[in-house]
Design a protein around this nucleic acid. Structure first.
Lengths: 101, 101
DNA sequence: CGACCTGTGAAAATCGTGTGAACGCAGGCA
DNA sequence: TGCCTGCGTTCACACGATTTTCACAGGTCG
């Protein structure tokens, strides 16, 4: 128990992601992205899908917003849950959220 | 231990907030706000929620009362408990009371 | 009147966002 | 193995948005 996960709860209605009951200080965008990813666990989501959900519309072909926010999110999650790696990169495709490592 | 908290007691029924047994000199509004925040520890509360509890009704869209009173409250808490940071800002959303830092 | 509380406007300070660019890693191929 | 190359990661910055703080005017109550 409390290995890696089970410690992270995502509560969109409370505008919060909790680790051990304590909210991470995520920005609105970061939270939106985390919520979107976590709503489809183990599913590889393309940048287009993620962009559509979080920003709305389609990303420019060279838009790196999703990558940048994934990076920021990983940094904050990594601080709060050092041993967990929740967001996985799928090269050439997109990202996947995995609740357990 | 006794960093930040354990030293602060909030007694709504006595219209008082005590630090090491001594009452802070808070105004009615300040106390109401502190009570409201502290009744939901670790929960991010929106301005609308706080306003509804303390002032009643809905704030004007550009109302900054909550912010101003949070600021006044922090000033007084900061004097009595210099090392504690009990009220956290969540940008774009609202405020959160955290008994321990 | 004098002391204090309250809400408002506005200036000052801080933070979030998106972008371009630098960097680094992994995979393909000789 | 060693070099390319494409893609993902992260940094730095500028701009806009949001929060913090200050000053003040009106109100209350002794």
């Amino acid at each position: 128990m409390l290995a890696g996960m089970g410690r992270l709860e995502i509560k969109p209605e409370q505008h919060a992601a909790l680790v051990d009951g304590r909210p991470l200080s995520l920005t609105v965008r970061e939270l939106q992205l985390l919520v979107t990813l976590s709503e489809h666990p183990q599913r590889i989501m393309t940048r287009e899908e993620l962009f559509a959900e979080v920003w709305g519309g389609r990303p420019r072909s060279d838009d790196r917003s999703v990558d940048v926010y994934v990076s920021r999110l990983r940094a904050k999650l990594g601080e709060a849950l050092p041993e967990a790696s929740l967001i996985h990169t799928h090269n050439g495709i997109g990202y996947r959220f995995s609740p357990d490592g």
